[in-house]
Amino acid sequence: MSAGNGRELRIVGFLCNWCSYGGADTAGVSRLGQPTDLRIIRLPCTGRMDPLFMFKALLSGADGVLVSGCHPRDCHYSEGNFYARRRLELAKRLLPTLGFDSGRFEYTWVSASEGKRWQQVVTAFTEQIHTLGPGPKFSH
């Protein structure tokens, strides 16, 4: 089920192993319906999330990028998501200057027990990307 009625778009999700990947699993086990545009890449921690992953994904044809990790103060490694928050906020703020809508990239926090919140995040972000439509084209 795609959020839009038209074709599926391509969204890349970078999820931390300890919280959000578990949260996505909880959502699945609880049979909470989700749009299927998202492809998930599992990271050991959002601290592993190089902002260049996001740029690389957008330049390689992704229409949106979602990063999700443990809530601040709940990081499995204590502080990975604190560093990630600064880096990702900065990268998000650079996007409009390059001609990408900053709504194509979001970062958020979902814990392993928050299956319902995961469903909300994926549904809202997928709808947002469908509103923006396919990413800009590189060929002239």
Partner: peptide
Amino acid sequence: PPLLTFQPEEKSITEREW
């Protein structure tokens, strides 16, 4: 350097509520 440190509560970063 700002990217080599952090604040548990970032005053200038407003996180999105879903």
